[in-house]
């Protein structure tokens, strides 16, 4: 008996197992805006548990994903940090028609890793108590745009501009603050919030009249137009379980 024929039954069994798996469980890859990292992980885990499908999320800035999708990146679903980028992709015919919807409304927060540093009215911004104010790059990330809007409305942008350091996306803006290199920064509430309270440091939830609402839209991309798992994920995101997770991170809906 040759070596090959001895292994044939094993190979056959393996192949059957692989194909059987593929038949019932689909894989979907999702481009997720950095601010939605924590909830997306929770939602993906809950969705995988309920359906047996496999979800592979990638995290980054919305602008970066737009460029990658334009160049043919193989994502099935895009959870953006704004509503303009998904709308642009829709207009360019890169999404499944009618799939666009607002899955969350983001909340901007002024946050410091230090206890008691940020007061609950944000008056720390008026004082000279810090050297670096971290924001996400407004050219690339909607939370960065919102931060600039808020500072402009507070008439502080001109004064504080020299202290601003820019993270490439909201994750890096948060990282500058969490490592203490910037004393405070504008981040997404979802990054520092769980189940009704701020998890560490001190924070001021920026009043929503200081910036345009951060509507975060989702779309199914063309690659997934016949992918049932992608549709199931969107339904899950819209459904009560998805909504509960999204709200637990401080998003509006």
């Amino acid at each position: 008996m040759s070596l090959v024929s001895r292994f044939t039954p094993c190979l056959a069994a393996f192949a059957v197992a692989v194909f059987a798996q593929a038949a019932q469980a689909d894989e979907i890859s999702i481009a997720v805006a950095a601010n939605f990292t924590a909830p997306a992980k929770d939602i993906a885990a809950a969705f995988e548990k309920e359906t047996g499908h496999k979800v592979t999320p990638s995290f980054g800035s919305t602008g970066q994903f737009y460029a990658q999708i334009n160049e043919g990146a193989p994502f099935d679903i895009f959870l953006a940090a704004d509503d303009t980028t998904p709308a642009k992709l829709e207009k360019e015919g890169k999404t499944v028609a009618g799939s666009r919807f607002t899955y969350a409304i983001g909340t901007l927060v002024l946050w410091s890793a230090k206890e008691g540093f940020v007061d609950d009215k944000g008056e720390v911004l008026q004082k000279d108590a810090f050297e670096h104010l971290s924001i996400a790059d407004p050219e690339k990330a909607p939370y960065g745009t919102a931060a600039v809007e808020a500072l402009t409305k507070l008439k502080l942008w001109d004064k504080l501009q020299a202290k601003v350091v820019k993270g490439n996306n909201i994750s890096q803006a948060h990282q500058f603050v969490s490592t203490g290199n910037a004393e405070l920064g504008f981040v997404a509430l979802s990054q520092v919030y769980k189940d009704g309270k701020v998890t560490s440091g001190s924070a001021w939830i920026v009043p929503t009249d200081l910036y345009e609402p951060i509507r975060q839209d989702a779309v199914i991309l063309n690659k997934a137009k016949d992918n049932a798992a992608a549709k199931a994920f969107i339904e899950f995101l819209k459904g009560p379980k998805g909504e509960q997770i999204i709200k637990s991170y401080g998003y509006g809906k």
């Binding site: 790059d137 050219e139 601003v164 820019k166 993270g167 500058f176």
Partner: peptide, 22 residues
């Protein structure tokens, strides 16, 4: 770096910014 023009925004980072913002 924190991407500050004139202080830490060097050439390679500037190129990255241009590409990311299309």
């Amino acid at each position: 770096g924190g991407n500050i023009p004139g202080k830490t925004q060097v050439l390679s980072v500037k190129i990255f910014d241009y590409v990311e913002t299309m």
